[in-house]
Design a protein around this nucleic acid. Structure first.
Length: 897
DNA sequence: GATGCAACGCTTTTT
DNA sequence: GCGTTGCATC
């Protein structure tokens, strides 16, 4: 029965599955599926590829399939391997399966991320790959510090060959499943004059001494394990009767190989040993400094992987080639495009009925993505109403864009839309700031998703380092991190001595330290400090045995002086850091012991959303994948930003297609409203650039898109059409060429005045044209020098703004904002705010209720820290922050201290 | 060991 | 423009 035709009659399969159920009527969970979904759930034999377009019920299929397998008794929970990319996805799956099966699925030990499963397997067989089962998992920070040490030891100038770059290269190799000896000679040449390979080998060796793995190793070491120990592999192949993979389009080569190994027929294990495959792209990742990494040898791909699996195994991959947006970190769309070749006899099922978005949105997204060539092709359709058209709105600059979006959100809010159902999805994270600033002013609750994660904060890592040393004394990286934090007189000199000693005796640093306390190599002062520290660690280790780990953490933070260090720190974020430490201890409660906790944080770097009840979400398009909202705002659709210039430069056509997929992902996040924006001027890297609308806008179907009219203000701005000339250089006209910036918010007297002044002045048009033409020409000549040369300088913001500022009453207050550092942002903020206040906008937005705060109050703001209230205006406070300077904020954002 | 200044870089991000 | 980082200096 393995020999099913590729396109079996759909009902046949379903019917057969029904028979398997003994002719009983389909259970509820099946009845709720559409025919294709049902086929995907019920095709339980042989490889299955489910191409699940956005919003077609992908997760539902996966979870139902698992529930179905369990219900039919085809496998025990422990015989199902289900892999996801993120912990979030894993959690969600577990939850939903539990709901369906009607109980908590404790018994699904092999449902998790690639990495979590990797750790589990590696811990069991650690000794077979040269590790001990309590090995540490290094995060990126540790990894870079380790590389630095390796580079130093090899006498490589870190200036010329930065550790970060090498970390990137290493990552690339590991993503492709390459061990040091497998690195193509050409690529190895590219770093440090051909030392790449050696360095990689040295790094791996060092990891072994540290009894540690980096993230890449969690996969790579498994490949090694399986290849060198076929018996172990066979054992897992036997165990996993069903394999399910989520987001298959995001798998990298290493993950692909891993799946191939596990998904292969058992008999075939010996054929696999030399498995190796080059990256799909002939030309690939680039470093800086002209460091081009190429796959020099055009080795035929995939030829050394064992031939087609002879016996079909039950592997089911779910993915969407149109949502592959992680090529830059090693994902290979190719894996999904080639599934049928890799797994002959595979059943391919397309899920094309979309349950998420209304008609216009879906049509717009489909039309856009149809411009891509390398795709399997799906046609999404919906039975939903057409709904609202996708809107495209032009804004003068990014500030106005933020203002217009803010306004639209307030309108939605007035119509009782939930803020939780609104998201702003940006291409690059620097775009977020503009919105944050705007929302703080408006008093609009928002949450930023992504950004520095909880466990990446310095204070958290420090605290963890202490715990890591207690847990595993050989953890040199952790030890080094905190040996002099807080300062205890163990500076670089002492640490270097420790290092020397450790290297000579080939022992971990802690051991070296222990030895050196007994000798008089060290000066008395550091020696004493070191002895104290080691005694403390001994004590904590003893306590660890009988105290609850949360208590231990508190003791350690306290006795080490770490808490005190932050208490004494007077900077704005010290309070937040202490709060984070408390949160850390709190979060430890969820774990049985220190070990479990440390493992969790190494792998589960995600943090649950903060407690804000109803708020607009701001995030990158990347982090929005998998999410959905009623209303989605998509700012920044401009050439150079979206599609991103670097993506085009580095990956050419493939890059453009990935950007287009990203745009497709962005639009398909919307259920009811997708609102696209572009600005004609944007500041990037400190310079104002005039920009042209994204080519993706032209690729949207006119019938489903509404180009919103400027609502007054800039009506008569034919003269602004500087973009016609720019398009000339670009080739072909865009219907957005003469687009007037949206000015919905500019019906204010101030703007009318500014506009009038500008018209009277009439000098602006010429300037705009000239600069823009030069700029776009330079851009398409792909000449970076020219590009920055053509951009407006920092001192001359885009023409209109410049005019406004220069016009007497709008100029920033002199003197008061001139301080540097943190004050700089204040200057930026205040200079812009001022005119708005004058024009009464802020007053108009005030609730009228007098604030609970008074002048002189000492307050705390989550973002800006502590400060003093210098003025109160309704619910708007002007606060002089200690660190962040003077800002106007809404009172609900601060609390009294 | 703290402080200050110059230099760098700046898409997307999980584990 | 702005935040981070590394080095030099006191």
């Amino acid at each position: 029965m393995a020999e099913q035709a590729k396109s079996p009659p759909k009902l046949g399969i379903a019917a057969r599955a029904m028979q398997a159920l003994g002719g009983a009527p389909a259970p509820d969970y099946l009845a709720a599926l559409n025919p294709e979904q049902r086929l995907a759930v019920e095709t339980l034999h042989g490889p299955v590829l489910v191409l699940a377009g956005a919003g077609t019920g992908k997760t539902r299929v996966l979870t139902t399939r698992i529930a179905h397998i369990l219900r039919l008794g085809r496998a025990h929970p422990s015989q199902i391997l289900a892999v996801t990319f993120t912990n979030k996805a894993a959690r969600e799956m577990k939850h939903r399966i539990g709901e369906m099966v009607g109980q908590i699925v404790e018994g699904m030990p092999w449902l998790g991320t690639f990495h979590a499963i990797g750790v589990k397997i590696l811990r069991r067989h650690a000794e077979l790959v040269g590790l001990k089962s309590n090995f540490t998992i290094l995060d990126v920070d540790d990894q870079i510090r380790l590389i630095k040490q390796i580079l130093e030891a090899a006498n490589i100038d870190e200036k010329r060959w930065p550790a970060r770059i090498f970390a990137g290269i290493l990552d690339g190799w590991k993503n492709r499943g390459l061990t040091p000896d497998q690195v193509p000679a050409g690529e190895a040449m590219a770093f440090a004059n051909g030392k790449g390979k050696e360095l990689y080998a040295a790094y791996q060796e060092r990891l072994k001494t540290l009894n540690a793995c980096d993230f890449g190793d969690l996969l790579l070491e498994q490949l090694r394990l399986f290849r060198h120990h076929p018996d172990v592999l066979a054992d897992y192949q036997r165990r996993f009767r069903y394999i399910l993979v989520d987001e298959y389009q995001d798998t990298n080569v290493a993950q692909y190989l891993w799946l191939r190994l596990l998904g292969q027929p058992r008999s075939n294990t010996t054929a696999v040993i030399p498995a190796r495959r080059e990256a799909a792209e002939p030309e690939s990742r680039t470093g800086n400094d002209g460091l081009r990494v190429r796959a020099e040898d055009g080795a035929p791909r995939n030829d050394d992987i064992s031939g087609p699996a002879r016996t079909l195994r039950n592997i089911c991959c779910v993915g969407d080639d149109d949502q592959s947006i992680y090529g830059w970190r090693g994902a290979e769309v190719d894996n999904i495009l080639r599934f049928e070749k890799d797994f002959p006899g595979a059943t391919v099922i397309r899920l094309e009925r979309n349950y998420r978005s209304t008609g216009h949105i879906l049509a717009a997204a489909s039309h856009l993505i149809a411009h891509n060539e390398g795709r399997l092709g799906k046609t999404l359709h919906t039975e939903d109403v057409p709904g609202e058209k996708v809107t495209v709105t032009g804004a003068w600059d990014s500030e106005e864009e933020a203002r217009a979006i803010g306004e639209e959100i307030e309108q939605l809010q007035r119509k009782k839309h939930k803020l939780d159902e609104i998201a702003i999805l940006v291409r690059a994270s620097f775009q977020m700031r503009e919105f944050e600033d705007r929302f703080v002013t408006l008093g609009l609750p928002y949450r930023v998703i992504g950004g520095p994660r909880f466990y990446e904060r310095a204070e958290i890592r420090d605290a963890l380092a202490y715990l890591r040393v207690i847990n595993q004394p050989a953890d040199d990286l952790a030890f080094e991190r905190i040996v002099n934090v807080p300062r205890r007189g163990l500076g670089d000199a002492t640490v270097k001595q420790l290092h020397d000693h450790a290297r000579m005796s080939r022992v971990p640093l802690t051991e070296a330290a222990r030895a050196m306390i007994e000798t008089d190599e060290l000066k008395p002062k550091p020696r004493g400090a070191l002895r104290d520290l080691m005694t403390a660690f001994d004590r904590w280790r003893t306590q660890a045995a009988h105290l609850p780990h949360t208590e231990l953490a508190e003791i350690v933070l306290d006795e080490s002086g770490y808490t005190e260090m932050w208490q004494k720190d007077r900077s704005a974020d010290a309070a937040g850091r202490l709060e984070n430490l408390k949160e850390l201890v709190r979060s430890m409660q969820d774990f049985e012991n220190l070990n479990g906790f440390l493992e969790h944080i190494a792998l589960v770097m995600d943090r649950d959303a903060d407690g804000i009840t109803d708020a607009v979400s701001i995030m990158t398009v990347h982090s929005a994948k998998g999410l959905e909202f009623d209303t989605v705002f998509l700012p920044g659709w401009e050439e150079g930003l979206f599609p991103h210039q670097r993506s085009l430069d580095e990956s050419g056509r493939a890059g453009l297609e990935e950007e287009r997929r990203l745009a497709h992902v962005a639009i398909t996040r919307a259920r009811k409203r997708a609102k696209i924006y572009f600005a004609t001027n944007r500041r990037m890297k400190g310079l104002w650039n005039s920009t042209i609308p994204s080519r993706f806008l032209d690729e949207l179907p006119e019938a489903h898109v509404e180009v919103t009219e400027a609502k007054g203000g800039f009506g008569g701005m034919g003269g602004y059409g500087s973009m016609g000339g720019m398009r000339g250089a670009f080739g072909g006209n865009s219907r957005f060429d003469n687009f007037a910036p949206a000015a919905s918010s500019y019906a204010t007297p101030g703007w009318q005045r500014a506009q009038k002044r500008q018209r009277d002045d009439d000098a602006f048009g010429g300037f705009g044209d000239e600069a823009s033409e030069y700029e776009s020409a330079a851009r398409y000549a792909n000449d970076d020098e020219g590009l920055s040369g053509s951009a407006y300088s920092v001192d001359s913001p885009p023409p209109l703004r410049g005019r406004v500022r220069e016009g007497g009453d709008f100029s920033p207050r002199p003197g008061s904002h001139s301080s540097r550092g943190a004050g700089a942002s204040r200057g930026r903020f205040a200079a812009r705010r001022e005119p708005l206040t004058i024009e009464g906008e802020l007053v108009a937005k005030s609730t009228g209720v007098s604030s609970a705060f008074a002048r002189g109050d000492r307050v705390f703001h989550i973002k800006f820290g502590n400060g003093n209230v210098v003025a109160v205006d309704g619910n708007k406070l002007t606060i002089q922050f200690d660190k962040a300077g003077e800002k106007r904020v809404v009172d609900s954002f601060v609390e009294r201290v």
